[in-house]
Design a protein around this nucleic acid. Structure first.
Lengths: 155, 155
DNA sequence: CTTGAATGGTTCATAAACTGAAGTATATGA
DNA sequence: TCATATACTTCAGTTTATGAACCATTCAAG
């Protein structure tokens, strides 16, 4: 019965098409994340990927459009499992820097490479299309982080 | 202190850039969804948007990369609130067709228009870039639905 | 027909994830 | 030095998602 699943979407606006594509990809990636590193749950994977360098928890919260308490919980898990350590930020001793351990670095490298692979398989895009998609996605992310942090749009 | 939030991502692969962009956009859209129709929660919004025509619950589950029990719960909420009705599919009386009511149609129209607006504001893309992004996103979604339904990759 | 297996949804108990409000410690400015 | 703001933590409560067992209908054989 699932013959015409990707059905007549022609009349939908580019914005809705974009949103549907983004949601499909997000859901697919989340689903696929289950199958690589059983040790880690989703938010831990997300945080690990973002820790390409030591970062303050507040920065991560902004980066992940999340709130401090969520970041605390996720960091707790990663710290307890030995993937990172908390170090006081010398520039502001109220803040913590999350620093990956050796184990954390290795897990992150693995994750990043797996995720790249995943994107490739899930999206089905070739190199040129991927580059173009990445360019636009990067631009979108910049715009979101720029506009999303200072104000709040509604709250 | 949040001066260099969108920091040196130059060395990240296009795949990771894409993923980060997709996640940022997804999270931003989800956050923004909170602010339009307080009556509806997120999964209900998603389902409503997908119901551009009557659909079977199984089709929706495939479409949303979800499982039947989740679809049941979401449909229950929408039905109880008067946005849709269940009708037996005449072609297979085991299956239900989810059909939007007048109220559901109106809510959907509003949502679709709001979501389009949201995408516009969140992404910051111009019309040409949006069209290109939509083209790639649509292609990605097609690929995911095509490959995602039959097999399962790992399970 | 009648039977057995497959399919479309539902129920329910549980787990995973997120959040806001109140609290602690440090910083900053008057 | 004191008041206020910031960075993070704690915790209790909500929301969301899920798998396993279940019911009803269909389909394919005999």
């Amino acid at each position: 019965m699932p013959e015409n699943i990707s059905d007549r979407l022609g009349r939908l606006s580019p914005e809705i098409l974009s949103i549907m594509g983004v949601y499909a990809l997000y859901w697919k990636l989340e689903e696929a994340f289950d199958c690589i590193e059983t040790e880690l749950n989703h938010p831990e994977c997300h945080m690990l990927i973002k820790l390409d360098q030591p970062k303050r928890m507040g920065v991560l919260a902004a980066d992940m459009l999340s709130v401090p308490s969520t970041i605390t919980a996720t960091a707790d898990g990663l710290e307890k499992a030995g993937y990172l350590t908390r170090e006081r930020d010398p520039e502001d001793r109220r803040a913590w820097l999350l620093v990956l351990t050796k184990q954390g670095e290795e897990a992150r490298d693995m994750l990043v490479s797996e995720a790249g692979d995943l994107f490739h398989r899930a999206s089905g895009l070739d190199a040129k299309e991927t580059a173009e998609f990445a360019r636009l996605a990067h631009k979108i992310r910049d715009n979101i982080l720029k506009s999303g942090i200072p104000e709040g749009l509604t709250k």
